[in-house]
Design a protein around this nucleic acid. Structure first.
Lengths: 191, 191
DNA sequence: TCAATAAGATGCAAGAATGTATCTTGACGA
DNA sequence: TCGTCAAGATACATTCTTGCATCTTATTGA
């Protein structure tokens, strides 16, 4: 027997269990009961820490973000880095879809916030991989800064997110290449 | 008194009530009880027609699509037509957001389909306004057909949908113009 | 070693929503 | 006009989840 877990140990185990439930069942199918069972404990333990489903789910998402930061080192080439970012992000699609099951739950009808604002809140304080890559691209002279206007600068992540939302599946490599070569780079390339 | 409704009359009233509930409460907050009350009737009347929440919600969405088709006539100019389409679509954002509350409900964990496939199924048989506009653009020589590859041809509707999903609000006119002038047209323009 | 604290088990009542059965009443068609 | 069928009202059992209270037990730190 591994004994009884306490404090941070237990909390992490609970959040991981919640994350798994969230990805497998979605927010609508998430129950305190199932999380407790999965973590090998019981509901009162959860109730002592979080206020309800929403609170628990948000905490679980926060932990995932902190646990698996998405970073792309300097590769010396904008295109390479963009494709690498998209490839890494593709492994997260199931998680992204799960997060949106929260975004589109009754939670928003109660708080009257938007997925956008919750996303911003969740990502606050975390590194912004795409922004870092674009910045390097500008420094290298690969990107014309004046072409990097708001709807363009978020274009790739928006397209990726949209694809994840609509298909629940990672974008195939050809599609990722098309986003970069046929859409994004032609729009920002310094020429 | 307006008397007792029957058949198609009643069915339409029920579907309209369901649509209103869906837009106001979201799919998670949709109850047969509330729909029945709103339509001035009782649950058994609903139960005789639809199998459950999902069935009812899909029928209600179908009716809305059929009731308010989105069409843009030939204006002789690609840019004008695109902006007109985006403007009209902007009035539908609340409805689109409501539809996604269904897309991200437990419904998909049960049917294991995707928002994409349900969207396709819902739109089947209905006019595709963007496709029609692009076709005219090609005919007029405003668009280079070889540039209209898959991720580009759906770019505008994807961006619009993504914005609707993330903000629950219509895109401001400047943003719509930026999508068209700074992103889409430069990518497809025949030059 | 021992007391304090929190983990973990269990039970119960409450609330929400659904499915279904039954019954009355109104509307339409032969 | 009258019979049929569906609309509409009502009630009941069921299911699912939660919140709360209680009790036991393991772990930690003084």
């Amino acid at each position: 027997m591994k004994g009884r877990r306490r404090g941070a140990d237990l909390e992490e185990a609970l959040l991981d269990a919640a994350w798994l439930e969230l990805t497998e069942r979605g927010y609508a199918g998430l129950t305190m009961e199932a999380v407790a069972t999965r973590a090998g404990t019981s509901r009162p333990v959860l109730a002592r820490r979080w206020d309800g489903k929403a609170d628990l789910a948000i905490a679980a998402i926060r932990r995932q973000i902190a646990k698996h930061p998405l970073e792309v080192p300097d590769r010396g080439d904008l295109r390479t880095e963009l494709l690498e970012l998209l490839e890494h992000a593709s492994n997260r699609v199931r998680g992204i879809a799960a997060v949106f099951t929260l975004f589109f739950s009754e939670y928003f009808h109660e708080t009257s916030s938007t997925p956008q604002s919750l996303r911003t809140a969740l990502l606050a304080g975390n590194p912004q991989p795409l922004a870092a890559i674009l910045e390097r691209g500008v420094k290298r002279g690969e990107i014309a800064p004046e072409k990097l206007v708001p709807p363009v600068s978020t274009l790739l992540s928006d397209l990726f997110r949209h694809h994840a939302i609509m298909t629940f599946a990672p974008p195939p490599p050809e599609l990722r290449v098309a986003w970069v070569d046929s859409i994004f780079l032609p729009l920002v390339r310094a020429d």
